[in-house]
């Protein structure tokens, strides 16, 4: 479609459509399923999420079945992924945090695979969908609050939201409770979701906008000389972002878990 348009100039409306094409097709290829009023049809985004999950599983599963004492390149990658999780993700504060390595490492690899799949032209970048990242953040927020309450008891956990030694107790304690509670239950998961979503979305948009400039100014203008190299540069940068955002999401989840774990001791 873009190829056909390459040699003609397009209107702003068409240009916008071209740039947003990837996300507009998110609900295509649908197998309609409905539970009461809730739509759970399997559409393009879901297909790609399935694909990403399958790739994540197969990547690690095949790696775990081909283990030899003298590792090949593939095994090294799988083992390094796991070792990276053990050394860089889990156990940042307490050794006990290692227990949650399977969770955060799975998050990391899943997000990373989805980020990288999203970079393939024509694929749907699942991690640039706010619904998806909010869902992952919900997993995180439920996990770390559950761990915090289970480890410290509900009372201690809620009490730990307010730092000790507050002046003007009658005003400050409810205020701090509100602020910290907001952070613990709303802000942290929201920022987790928004960060991943916005970074991946912005990266794709920048590439599309640079390429879209060619459509707007025409392929025979001077614009392609500038916008194609810029798109390539940002494409490469997006690969880096794919890794870094997956890592940030995973390590923040891990840190939140370990913070909640030790909530009773810090305050």
């Amino acid at each position: 479609m873009m190829g056909a348009l390459a040699f003609m100039q397009v209107s702003q409306e068409e240009l916008k459509k071209e740039i947003l094409h990837t996300w507009e097709t998110g609900r295509d290829w649908a197998i309609p399923i409905q539970i009461g009023p809730v739509d759970i049809s399997i559409n393009k985004a879901v297909w790609f999420m399935f694909f990403g999950a399958a790739v994540t599983f197969l990547l690690l599963f095949v790696g775990s079945r081909l283990l030899k004492s003298r590792p090949g390149a593939y095994q090294v990658i799988v083992e390094e992924l796991y070792g990276f999780g053990r050394n860089q993700l889990a156990g940042q504060m307490t050794q006990e945090g290692q227990k949650f390595l399977p969770f955060t490492l799975s998050l990391f690899v899943f997000i990373l695979v989805l980020n990288l799949i999203g970079l393939v032209p024509g694929a749907y970048p699942v991690t640039s969908n706010i619904s998806f990242t909010l869902g992952l953040a919900a997993f995180a927020v439920i996990t770390y609050n559950f761990v915090g309450i289970k480890r410290n008891g509900l009372g201690t956990y809620l009490k730990s939201l307010v730092p000790p030694g507050m002046p003007a107790k009658p005003i400050m304690v409810p205020f701090m409770f509100f602020v910290e509670g907001l952070q613990q239950f709303i802000t942290q998961p929201l920022t987790l979701a928004m960060r991943l979503y916005a970074n991946i979305l912005a990266g794709h948009l920048i590439i599309f906008v640079f390429l879209g400039l060619i459509l707007y100014f025409g392929a025979l203008s001077v614009v392609p000389l500038l916008s194609v190299p810029m798109a390539v540069v940002f494409y490469a940068f997006e690969i880096f972002v794919a890794f870094i955002q997956a890592y940030i999401f995973a390590i923040l989840t891990q840190v939140y878990i370990e913070l909640a774990m030790n909530a009773g001791e810090d305050h």
Binding site: W23, E24, G26, I40, N43, M49, V126, I130, G135
Partner: peptide, 17 residues
Amino acid sequence: PTGIFDLPNTSLIFWEI
């Protein structure tokens, strides 16, 4: 309708979980 701020995509959230 552009799909950039795709909320709420119930099917995606459901299948994601």
